[in-house]
Design a binder for these strands. Structure first.
Lengths: 136, 136
DNA sequence: GGAAAGTTTCCACCCAGTAGAGGGTTCTTG
DNA sequence: CAAGAACCCTCTACTGGGTGGAAACTTTCC
């Protein structure tokens, strides 16, 4: 079947999951998981049931990958992508969400700094016992 | 039974799990979980099967809590505490482990900073489309 | 036509706990 | 001494974000 022979304006690439995995660097399983969670909606299914993706899906996966890397949860991402897909381009919603994320990142950085101090303190307390039992 | 009547040097406090939870601020369930994982070894069991803890266990829990807070894994903690319990006072092993952790914290801080930039970039790219579809 | 690669669904597992059921123990109070 | 509260036990099941494998189907290549 010449599935893409007469199409001229929109090639409708119909990428299969393996190709998407190759292009995004995400594991096939993960992409399937994202579909299951409603995060990613394949453009269609082939007659035999294969998921078919398009360029828009790739763009979404880029966003998903970026935001997941900063611990935006799956349900939160579902919400964000729904807004985006709605075409409303509701940037304020996204801005709020992302601003909150930046805040939490700053908080986390402070926590990590505090942990480094704690770590040093802990290490010090262990050094106190050095030698007392080791030579026993 | 006057279990601690004749003891003079070592009171052998025999704390039960609830008391340990109260003193450390950890949930009872978590302490039980740590025991199951071999992270924490109760001094003994009462005749009726209650876990009995001592001051040493409290000290260990302090360490566990500090290190868990910085994402030291349970298996890693098992290893660390085993070394500590062995009485060898092998500070160099611990120092290495903790130094590595500090490194990874620094790395993580850098990553988070990079994420903040990425986040700003992403936000910018979304703002580009602002208005084109929203007013449609 | 037949092997190899790709895809499907489903089920189980990982970590670090957490929640609840169902039952035994210990402490306090009448 | 009994009742009830508070405590503790084990066991099972669930969480989130995937990951691994099995068994069956489709597509592709030779």
């Amino acid at each position: 079947m010449a599935r893409q022979g007469s199409v001229s304006a929109k090639p409708a690439p119909s990428l299969r999951i393996g190709e998407v995995a190759r292009r995004t660097g995400l594991p096939v399983k993960t992409i399937r998981y994202y579909c299951d969670e409603g995060l990613l909606q394949p453009r269609a299914r082939s007659e035999s049931g294969y998921r078919l993706f398009d360029e828009e899906n790739l763009a979404e996966l880029t966003i998903i990958r970026s935001l997941r890397a900063m611990d935006v949860s799956i349900p939160e991402l579902v919400r964000i992508l729904e807004v985006r897909r709605a075409g409303v381009c509701n940037c304020s919603v996204l801005k709020d969400s992302i601003a909150a994320k930046v805040d939490s990142i700053n908080l986390r950085i402070d926590e990590l700094a505090a942990m480094k101090d704690e770590l040093a303190r802990l290490l010090n307390s262990w050094q106190d016992c050095g030698g007392s039992k080791a030579d026993d």
